[in-house]
Amino acid sequence: MTPRSCPCGRTESYDACCGRYHAGAAAAPTAEALMRSRYSAFVKGDTGYLLRTWHPRTRPERLDLDPRMRWTGLEILDATGGSAFHGTGTVTFRASYRGGSLHERSRFERVAGAWVYVDGDFPE
């Protein structure tokens, strides 16, 4: 990641990519875009955005992030559904951090027209 690129791995600047979603200037148009923006929110420590983009049915009351966690990269492995023409979608990814990685298949749904994170599982 260059200093000006977005934490999600896209070449655009943070402000032009995930930052606009975090600021509320736009909504993520696809499940993958939402997943990328949520990864960037973890990198930035933006718990408000993470909670706002979590499905009301599965959202925790609060979210405590470890300030020592250092995320180092995101790799999208697969995406199904999740476009403007779908009501659900899945995104399988690997998020690396200092000392390891997290491999998850996340499920997303539209609520009132906006993509939200529902839950995920950890494929082997």
Rank of each mutant, 00 (worst) to 15 (best):
F93Q: 01
Y117W: 04
V43P: 09
G89W: 05
S96E: 12
A26C: 04
D46A: 12
F93K: 00
W115Y: 10
A79Q: 12
V43K: 06
R20Q: 14
A23Y: 05
T30N: 11
H22A: 09
S96L: 00
V111S: 00
T11Y: 02
I76L: 07
P67H: 00
R110M: 06
R20H: 08
G99P: 02
L34V: 14
G120K: 07
A95T: 00
L102S: 09
A79D: 05
R105I: 11
P29D: 03
G99S: 01
D121Q: 11
T53N: 06
G99K: 01
A41G: 00
T80G: 12
K44C: 05
S83K: 10
L50C: 10
G81T: 11
E75N: 04
H103A: 09
H86I: 01
S101Q: 00
A112C: 02
L74R: 05
S13L: 06
R38N: 09
W54E: 08
F85T: 14
R36Y: 04
L77F: 09
M69V: 14
H86V: 07
P29S: 09
R70I: 15
L102R: 08
S37Y: 06
A33W: 01
T30H: 14
F93V: 00
T90R: 08
V116H: 04
G24R: 04
T58K: 03
D121W: 12
G24W: 04
T80I: 10
E109N: 12
L34E: 12
E75Q: 12
G113Y: 12
E61G: 15
S101A: 15
T11G: 06
C18Q: 06
P29F: 06
R38Y: 07
T72H: 01
C17S: 08
H55A: 14
R59A: 15
E109G: 03
V43D: 08
A79Y: 06
Y14D: 08
D119G: 13
G48Q: 14
T88D: 11
E104C: 00
R36N: 01
G19N: 03
T80R: 14
R10D: 14
R105S: 08
G89P: 13
R105A: 13
L51G: 03
R110Q: 15
P56F: 09
L102H: 02
L65P: 10
A84T: 15
G100N: 05
R105E: 14
T30Y: 05
L63D: 07
P29R: 02
L50S: 05
R98M: 09
V116K: 10
S101V: 00
R107W: 09
S96D: 10
S40G: 10
R59V: 02
T11D: 07
G48V: 13
V111R: 09
R94V: 00
